[in-house]
Amino acid sequence: MTLDIAKKKEILATVENLRVTDIRDGMDWVGLHHFGTIEPEIRPLWRAKAAGFAKTARHIPTNRQVPTMSPDDYTKWAYEYWYGQVMANDYRDLVDDTAFLAIDTCNTPTPAVGSMDSMIFAALGARGVVTNGGTRDSDETLEQKAIPIWSRWICQPMYQGRVEWGGHSMPVEIGGQRVNPDDLIVADGDGVIVVPQDVIEDVLKYAIQESENDKIARGHLFDALGIPRNETTESKFDVPPHPYELNREAIELRIKRKF
């Protein structure tokens, strides 16, 4: 199944009103209990929410030896050879405004994204980055907040002598999950989940069902606790009533009192 840009944007507009936990519920409802959830060690650099369609890339460990040379020669070698050839890549043709970058560093503590990369990715229109590698220049990246980032590490090194470009637009592994190009990625403070493209519509149907029921329950619990209702209790979708709606009576039964 290939989704066009208009359909992708329609899906993303729906996902804006859902949490990662709702998507997780949707995956469970279609029988994918052990699929999709990226390892919890891969965390947001700051609390953020993002969703998009996977654009994949890979950095692979190198077996190239760094030669002995003067610092001035190292500058030429790093920029002309390593950055210019070994790590040469071009995200310009890979990224559009529905893209969520999934960068597999083969679990090496090297940077998939730094302060400059984050601004380049954002300027190209990407919605987020997830990696099993690291974030570099994290103080600047946190200050800029150009693009939401989920990574395994905060790290210091650059690429040279460590990893080389391994290609793009292929299946990659991020946090124990396979990510295919154009899978749906949803991420927030609870982590990251990957939805295979061929089940997106079914997953969203049941994610919405459970999310709407949760909002009903939250609204009644807010009332019981004297908390002013807010947008987390507001319905976002016009869908049939949940077959096991958590209505006021059900909540009163659970908390053993009327309110």
Rank of each mutant, 00 (worst) to 15 (best):
K236L: 04
E234K: 13
E234L: 15
V239T: 12
L225T: 04
L225C: 10
R218V: 15
D223H: 13
L246Y: 00
L246R: 06
E252T: 03
T232Y: 13
T232W: 12
R218Y: 09
R218M: 15
K236T: 00
Y244L: 14
P240V: 09
L246T: 05
G219S: 13
E245W: 00
F222E: 09
D238F: 01
R248H: 08
K236F: 02
T233H: 00
L225W: 11
K236Y: 05
H220A: 14
E231K: 05
D238L: 04
E231Y: 12
T233F: 01
H220R: 03
R229H: 12
I227E: 08
L221W: 08
P241W: 06
D223R: 04
H242W: 04
N230T: 14
E234N: 11
A250W: 01
Y244I: 05
T233M: 06
D238V: 11
P228G: 06
F222K: 01
L225R: 09
N230Q: 14
L225E: 13
D223C: 01
E231C: 02
T232Q: 08
R229A: 15
R218H: 10
A250R: 02
H242V: 05
T233G: 14
A250M: 10
P241Q: 13
E231P: 00
I227A: 05
N230V: 08
T233K: 01
P241D: 15
G219N: 02
R229T: 14
L225N: 04
P243E: 08
F222L: 01
G226M: 04
T233E: 07
K236S: 01
I251F: 06
D223L: 04
L246F: 02
N247C: 10
A250D: 02
V239W: 01
V239F: 01
S235P: 02
E231L: 13
I227N: 03
G226I: 01
R218N: 13
A250E: 06
N247K: 02
H242M: 05
R229N: 09
A250K: 08
S235Q: 09
E249V: 14
D238A: 13
N230I: 10
H220S: 05
N230S: 15
A250V: 13
Y244Q: 14
Y244T: 09
D238P: 00
E252A: 11
F222M: 13
P240H: 03
I251D: 02
E249N: 10
N230R: 12
H242D: 15
F222T: 11
T232A: 13
E249A: 15
G219P: 00
E245Y: 00
R248N: 05
E249W: 03
L221H: 07
P228I: 10
E252I: 05
L246K: 09
G219V: 01
T232N: 13
D238I: 03
L246E: 08
I227F: 10
Y244E: 15
R218P: 08
G219E: 04
A224C: 10
E252M: 07
D238Q: 08
A224I: 14
P240I: 09
I227V: 15
F222G: 03
V239D: 03
T233I: 07
R248T: 12
I227Y: 07
H242R: 00
E245K: 09
A224W: 07
L246W: 04
E231D: 15
G226V: 07
D223N: 09
G219R: 08
R248F: 07
